[in-house]
Amino acid sequence: MAAPSSGSLRSYILGRLAFAPVFLFLLLTMLFILLRVAPGDPVAAALGDRVSAEQLDIRREAAGLNDPLLVQYGRYLGNVVQGDLGTPITDPRSVTQIVADLFPATFELTMFAMIVAVLVGIIVGALGARHRDGLFDVGGRLFGILIYAAPVFWLGILAQLLFANRWGLFPTGNRVSARITFDDPTGFYLLDGILTGNSQLFWNALEHLVLPGMTLGLVISGVFIRMVRVNMLQTLRSDYVEAAMARGIPERKVVFRHAFRNALVPVVTIMGLQFALLLGGAILTETTFSWPGLGQALVEYINTRDYAAVQGIVTFFAILVVAVSLLIDIINGLVDPRVRY
């Protein structure tokens, strides 16, 4: 009857940390291959008309595109490890600089959207499961399906038309009104507003965040609504819930502490998976709302065929996804004791 070594959280986290670089390495390799598979000469594609043939050769040489593929690959990986994401063809800033400039906007947007998605998902899903097949449940499920199927840019435009143009409740785009003067030490306007005590900045930034954040968040919430509802239904019927009722634990407590908490455990994992989706959606949302984030910049660089910038930004996204994935795994380990084995 000797107790097994109860799952060490520390060894679990270390295990996950060890796995992350491998994961990242595989991802970056795939990225590299994909970008090289595209036919044509990227330098010419980006600058072709505007610059002489000799200049193109010089640029190509400078960009290292004449070197053997393996060398380019090695250089790419080496650079990433040192934090160098490359240099765009059409922009004087380095990609790292571009990221530093634009990522805070994307971050605020995706965070807001994630919070919206999870909250809506949990509330609608849990209440729906609790009062199964009631009006709220059926309505909620319908809502979830419809909103998930709706293209995010369509929804965004609709939101702009309605809430911005029609009713004038929120601004149509951008992060902050031009008339506001402010300091932005971190680039995260909400945080900056708090740090510099600039309440005008804070509220104005928040106001601008609402439409794009809600749009993106609601679209993603469809997944969470469904997942939470299904899990809740399952946990409500579970044996430990029945046993808890048999012990005379009040029903409210049983539903919340046992059914609800257990239902949420898989949601944490889903959050990690949805994050990548969120990034993709952010690109569309930023374009629709003229949101000056990394996603919108990416679209522009794609349009101008600036493959170096594209590669750099997508690399950053890849690193971000791995990091978030790792974070989610760790949270999972904290939340669910069974996982630590």
Binding site: D239, Y240, E242, A246, R261, N262, D336, P337, R338
Partner: peptide, 15 residues
Amino acid sequence: LALVFQEPMTRLDPL
């Protein structure tokens, strides 16, 4: 009144 159920494996909250 106390009730002891049949399958003990699933009667405790795993969290």
